[in-house]
């Protein structure tokens, strides 16, 4: 009958359980999510300290403590980045799936197809790794924005110790941005990119998980994704 073929998922479909996300990739995801949340919240406070501390200055340490948490989270964020780079190169094939291989026709066609499927609410072709659209979004909003924040952030961090280690490493960013204030404002503006990304990311993950019945949400905890046995999925081996 029509009703069985047209429904999103036919009850008799059997699923295959495939290990996609390695533990290192999953750990990176949650460390990153936590660090970004803490960094954004503390960053907003540093830009506009809305709490007003009472008492003598030697009794309270609010701003300095918030900054300390911001810096500690920043180190965690940066270390997690290096960690994830290791898995990009030496992890399984899904760890680098979807990466913008702009020189390959296949990546572009996958990008167009995935964007069209999402917009037209079509189930279309499934993926086990990242699809091209996800790969593009992660490259721009996580890798790209992340490096911008790491560079501008550590440059600002270096200002309290001129001539020190961080100044030598990333101090050049400040004149590049047009001075200290503009570096601050650039850092602040880029931070909002993570908010835009988080909204889009969480929505698309929920939608994708419902649309393709692939266990996407749980996969970032367990590492396993599901695919219908008869469906010829792109396994993400060739981005």
């Amino acid at each position: 009958m029509n009703s069985t073929t047209r429904a999103p998922v036919a009850p008799q479909v059997t699923y295959e359980r495939i290990y996609v996300w390695q533990w290192g990739v999953r750990a990176f995801h949650w460390i990153n999510a936590t660090a970004i949340t803490v960094l954004f919240a503390t960053g907003l406070y540093i830009a506009d300290p809305f709490l007003s501390a009472n008492g003598e200055a030697y009794d309270v340490f609010v701003m300095a403590r918030i900054r300390q948490i911001h810096f500690a989270s920043a180190f965690l964020f940066a270390i997690a980045f290096v960690w994830r780079m290791y898995f990009f190169w030496f992890g399984n094939r899904y760890a680098r799936s979807g990466f913008p291989a702009v020189w390959k026709r296949k990546w572009w066609s996958d990008l167009v197809r995935q964007a069209t499927d999402y917009l037209t609410l079509n189930v279309g072709h499934g993926h086990l790794g990242h699809n091209a659209l996800a790969g593009l979004a992660y490259t721009l909003f996580v890798i790209g924005l992340g490096w911008c924040q790491i560079l501008t952030g550590f440059a600002l961090y270096s200002e309290s110790n001129p001539g020190g280690f961080w100044d030598g490493l990333v101090g050049w960013v400040i004149p590049l941005c047009g001075g200290s204030l503009r570096t601050h404002m650039t850092h602040h503006l880029f931070a909002w990119g993570f908010v835009v990304f988080a909204i889009a990311h969480v929505y698309i993950v929920l939608f994708d998980s419902r649309q393709y019945r692939n266990g996407l949400i749980g996969s970032m905890i367990t590492g396993f994704k599901f695919k219908p046995v008869e469906r010829g999925d792109d396994d993400g081996a060739k981005p």
């Binding site: 830009a47 506009d48 999402y118 917009l119 404002m185 650039t186 602040h188 503006l189 931070a191 909002w192 990119g193 908010v195 835009v196 909204i199 889009a200 929505y203 698309i204 939608f207």
Partner: peptide, 19 residues
């Protein structure tokens, strides 16, 4: 930057809601 960020986040949320 705060105002630009809020507008961008609202646009993203509206896009998700429309979808």
């Amino acid at each position: 930057p705060q105002a630009i960020g809020k507008v961008a986040a609202t646009v993203a949320a509206l896009g998700a809601a429309a979808h």
